[in-house]
Nucleic acid binder design. Sequence first.
DNA 1: TTTT
DNA 2: TTTT
Lengths: 131, 131, 131, 131
Amino acid sequence: MNKVILVGRLAQDPEVRYTQSGKAVASFSLAVNRYAGQGQNSVDFIPIVAWEKLAETCGNNLNKGQRVLVDGRLQIRSYEANDGQKRRVAEVVAQSIEFLERRQTPPSGAAENIDVNSFGKDVFPDEEIPF
Amino acid sequence: MNKVILVGRLAQDPEVRYTQSGKAVASFSLAVNRYAGQGQNSVDFIPIVAWEKLAETCGNNLNKGQRVLVDGRLQIRSYEANDGQKRRVAEVVAQSIEFLERRQTPPSGAAENIDVNSFGKDVFPDEEIPF
Amino acid sequence: MNKVILVGRLAQDPEVRYTQSGKAVASFSLAVNRYAGQGQNSVDFIPIVAWEKLAETCGNNLNKGQRVLVDGRLQIRSYEANDGQKRRVAEVVAQSIEFLERRQTPPSGAAENIDVNSFGKDVFPDEEIPF
Amino acid sequence: MNKVILVGRLAQDPEVRYTQSGKAVASFSLAVNRYAGQGQNSVDFIPIVAWEKLAETCGNNLNKGQRVLVDGRLQIRSYEANDGQKRRVAEVVAQSIEFLERRQTPPSGAAENIDVNSFGKDVFPDEEIPF
DNA sequence: TTTT
DNA sequence: TTTT
């Protein structure tokens, strides 16, 4: 059991890249408000990653500022930093994303609440992420 | 909504420290197995933090290897590294912990499944964590 | 661990009643869309119950049609039906409710996304529910 | 979003039946302890349903008394009672089940913590359940 | 840095 | 109908 459920707003437009094997990967930062008691609210900026069809759905339908619900798992990934040091980064690998509002600037005919529940349910190994 | 639910085993005994204001903080790494398809299982080592009464319950009742269910929220914390650089670390702030098995080496009379659901439900601001 | 997380729309205005001891209880039915594959979507109407301050917040701020996120636990309650038979009903006891959109017909100055995370965290016994 | 996460013990051995179309369906009641404050613990007996491969895994590996974690969704199902009246029943449709302890009376070589995460992820319509 |  |  490794489950994460977040509601927040995209802090940026999703970036979609492709692995060498051709898999789409979307990544963005999610601003999640933290209720810290007496009017002292703060924010966590949480890195989100989505793969394959779900990645493309994100790229095509999500924009900075939009509110979403992300259902996924928390993953710790190791990478080599510029100074040659090994560092760890945590990110949420999205398994499904629910759109909680229509996009700010509707380009085509984006319906409210596109359900992507059927995409991206697969679990991926620590494949080469191109970023 | 910022919810994390994990089932895993303590990768180490909990360390309990105290803030300057006297609050207990327990921290440990949780080994969460990842089902990566065809017998290719791997692990995420996820940093867990608990506060106050829940921290003390952890210190008194948990040991390396024990399996627990952690219910909490995902938090990104900034700190200054040794080289003066600002770095971010993700950790799960436990709101409750369910013990899924009795401890390996029962010291007193530790019952199976001590329910700590009533402790530590509070949300803490980014207070000075002493580690 | 008994956790339920639902996103849906109120199928009706909340009804607020009071127990003999004076506790507020709100109840409503939540329409939760079910993604049933190939365009075959259906709905579950799930009974929600909220207590005390959270009940009052519901009564004052929620209306039929509004979309909310409910975080709670699943409870089975026994009652005696009109024909004298004992029957069981399942309901979700809300621990917190996040408003995912401003109300349809703003009466006062209802802000978007009122956070009620701090209310209603308590667990209630099977008290006499007045309905 | 319709998510339910429960930890409890099987109140009975799973019953496995088959629909007319040949799909396996397992059902059992899960005893979930409720922490009701001051030593006043009570229990919810929650109906669980599993389909197909997951149903068979349940039938072959689970017994009364075993502790499991159920991850699923809450579903309201209508049926016609013996007296001709329409009635509703709530049940949790399991999407995955994690075994939190080895079975009481190991028949073959049941390993601890068989991971069924890869089974039963599909969502089924309100198909004819044979019970 | 790591658990079974 | 019920688990530890």
